[in-house]
C-alpha cells in the first residue's frame, strides 16, 4: 500500500505558454524510456528478485510514479488553456482529436504506451542490467529535453529529474554488486 502526500516531489513551475514543449515532454510520460515504463518495470520485477534488492526496486518504482506525476503536471499546465488551433500548431492536433484536453500515455510521436517497452526476464542480472540501461536512457532523454526547452523553470525541474536518474542507476549498479557478493554463499537464485 502507499501513503499519498498531496504535493509534488519537486515543485513544477512553467514560465511560458508553449504547448509544443508538452508534446516533447510526453516522451518521458508515456515513451519507451519514460517514467511510466520505469515504474511499471521495477514494480513488477520487484516480486521475484533476490530479497536483498526488493527494497531498491520497490522504492525506485515508487519514486518513478512521483516523477510521472511531475511530468503530468508540466504537460497539463502547458496544454490546459491551449485552443484547438494552438494545439494543432504545436503538433498536438491528432492528440486533441483523440483525447481532447486529457493527458494520455503516449510518446512524443503520439504512439500509445505498450507493455512491450518493458521486460521481466526471470534472471536478476538480466533484469538489473535492463534497469540500469533504462535509467541511462531516461537521463539522456532529459538531456535532450533540456536542450530543446528554453523555459528556465521547466529546465530546473528537468535537471532535478535527470540527476535522480543518475542516483537510480547507481543504486541498481550497487544491487548487482550485492548479488555478486552472494557468489561464495552457495545459494541458488
Amino acid at each position: 500500500m502507499w501513503v499519498y502526500e498531496k504535493k509534488l516531489l519537486y515543485p513544477v513551475e512553467v514560465g511560458t505558454c508553449n504547448p509544443t514543449l508538452a508534446k516533447y515532454l510526453m516522451e518521458q510520460y508515456g515513451g519507451a524510456d519514460g517514467e511510466l515504463a520505469a515504474a511499471l518495470r521495477y514494480m513488477n520485477q520487484r516480486y521475484t528478485v533476490p530479497s536483498k534488492v526488493i527494497g531498491v526496486l520497490n522504492d525506485i518504482a515508487t519514486e518513478e510514479f512521483s516523477h510521472l506525476e511531475m511530468l503530468a503536471t508540466m504537460i497539463y499546465k502547458l496544454t490546459k488553456d491551449a485552443t484547438p488551433e494552438q494545439l494543432v500548431e504545436a503538433g498536438l492536433g491528432a492528440h486533441f482529436v483523440n483525447h481532447g484536453h486529457d493527458l494520455f500515455y503516449e510518446n512524443a510521436n503520439g504512439v500509445p504506451f505498450t507493455a512491450t517497452y518493458i521486460q521481466a526476464k526471470g534472471d536478476p542480472i538480466a533484469d538489473l542490467y535492463e534497469d540500469i540501461a533504462a535509467e541511462e536512457k531516461a537521463r539522456a532523454t532529459y538531456q535532450w529535453l533540456i536542450d530543446v526547452s528554453d523555459d528556465p523553470l521547466i529546465n530546473d525541474s528537468l535537471r532535478f529529474l535527470r540527476e535522480r536518474e543518475n542516483i537510480h542507476s547507481l543504486r541498481f549498479r550497487e544491487s548487482v554488486e550485492l548479488l555478486k557478493d552472494e557468489r561464495d554463499r552457495k545459494k541458488i537464485f
Binding site: Y142, Q143, I146, D147, S149, D150, N155, R159, R162, E163, N166, I167, L170
Partner: peptide, 8 residues
C-alpha cells in the same frame, strides 16, 4: 560527487 549537472 554524483551531481554532474547539465544545461542547454
Amino acid at each position: 560527487l554524483f551531481d554532474d549537472g547539465f544545461s542547454r
